[in-house]
Design a protein around this nucleic acid. Structure first.
Lengths: 124, 124
DNA sequence: ATGCCTGCAAAAAGTTTGCACTAAA
DNA sequence: TTTAGTGCAAACTTTTTGCAGGCAT
């Protein structure tokens, strides 16, 4: 629990959604905190199970708080044009995963799943 | 249809699975073809609908052939330790996607989905 | 001759690492 | 005093871009 770590957590608490290290530095932390430090903190917070790393397939790592309310994780529906992000609560992949455990024998199965589309506002 | 493009397609035809640009250069193309050229070709082949780009969440773009047999796309189950890749044929997300179109109004919805686990050989 | 493809080199973007300094337990 | 976190700078990785030359239509 350090000042930088606190700033990161506060930022992510107040602003819902996955943000990149650069987002966090530029948008939420006015003081000139170093990107390297932010990366190091994001990494350790993820390892501690406090943050979750999202993959949108553009080579940028984004993080968001692990929501303690849902033990059920969620995914995102991202607009390709305006980058707006909606939360997708349900995840119906659990049966599939149980099937992998039986059929393929894999253990500790996790998954990444994100949806992309064009939102109503951008369809003009 | 150029020599480099042909080499890339032959490589991906003979070797099933998603490969990165570097994989393709080092493992399949003995001649010293430039990485920049390979990247350019992978990009245009993807735009042409011949290759598909996979995201494993490690910041490396991997490509594989779009299988003309399945109009139904597939996903992957990747071992975290030995990196072995198994193909997951079924994708039961279509109903979810139709739901997005109705509920959120998003159009042209696509998704990325990959599974990670520990394969039987690596569970010792 | 025009246009696309290529190789080379350099640059860009995101992330990681080394090191010395500081603050905290 | 020992440990862990920070800022700065530099390195590293993956990918992109600029440019000049080459091949093919």
């Amino acid at each position: 629990i350090t000042p930088t770590r606190k700033l990161i957590l506060e930022s992510l608490l107040k602003n819902h959604g996955p943000f990149s290290a650069e987002d966090i530095q530029k948008r939420f932390i006015k003081k000139d905190h170093d990107l390297a430090t932010i990366y190091r903190n994001l990494q350790s917070l993820e390892e501690a199970g406090i943050l979750h790393r999202c993959e949108f397939g553009d080579g940028i790592a984004r993080y968001e708080l692990v929501d303690p309310d849902h033990d059920h994780h969620h995914h995102h529906l991202i607009c390709r044009k305006c980058k707006k992000i909606e939360v997708v609560d349900a995840c119906e992949l659990e049966p599939t995963i149980h099937q992998f455990v039986k059929k393929h024998g894999f253990a500790d199965v996790s998954h990444i799943l994100e949806f992309f589309g064009v939102c109503p506002d951008c369809q003009g």
